[in-house]
Nucleic acid binder design. Sequence first.
DNA 1: ATGGTAGGTCTCCTA
Length: 262
Amino acid sequence: MALTVCTWNINSVRLREPIVLKLLQEEAPDILCLQETKCPVDKFPYDAFRALGYQHVIVRGQKGYNGVSILSRVPVEDAGSHDFCEKGDARHVAVRTGSGLTIHNFYVPAGGDIPDVALNEKFAHKLNFLREMQEWFRAEPPRNAVLVGDLNIAPREDDVWNHRQLLKVVSHTPVEVEQLTLTQGAGAWVDITRRDIPEGPLFSWWSYRSPDWNAADKGRRLDHIWATPDVVDRSGGSRIARHVRGWEKPSDHAPVFAEFDV
DNA sequence: ATGGTAGGTCTCCTA
């Protein structure tokens, strides 16, 4: 059975409930992982998603910030969440499918503006978060697993609109890319999007501050889909639904898709 | 070098 997985930083699930419904209707992923829902658990719009057939809704949330959730139209069970950096942030949740595939949904800290841990505690938090991911994957090596989410790092030169210009911009600095690479290695994760689309510019995020995001195309690939080696041969179909960035009242992120045979 | 937009919440923080 083919399972379509989608990851999307939604930047307020309540404000963008209409376009989440539109995505579910037009693309019908089996599993949709959302980040930055900015919504407490008790205010999550469960019913609207269930009405479209997404009966399984796993939510972690807090007031105002962060928040991750997983909507599924195939049976999944809550596989728990990890509290990185002991801040109590809702930045991770996992589910397990009936076939035994584990799906991790991550929202890695953005890291603020200044790429210096001595001057910016948010940048330090981002790097510490990635180090704790590494510790976790080393202690409990993931198997039969998929990792998706807004990792807030564009690792490759062709994951940003201008490599040289972004070397000192948070999301593309060498120290962040190094930590992301170490995180990938710690779980033996394979970047499925780049396995499927190996060459060329590929973005999932365009700033709201850019007046003409589509024409200027100053994007970055911040949203990722990874899989463990035992899943890689059963994966494919990667794509980024760039047109969704142009919908009414859009998120600044576009949804990223991949398919898995389970 | 700078400032640009957006969302949540309660006055400014975060992205």
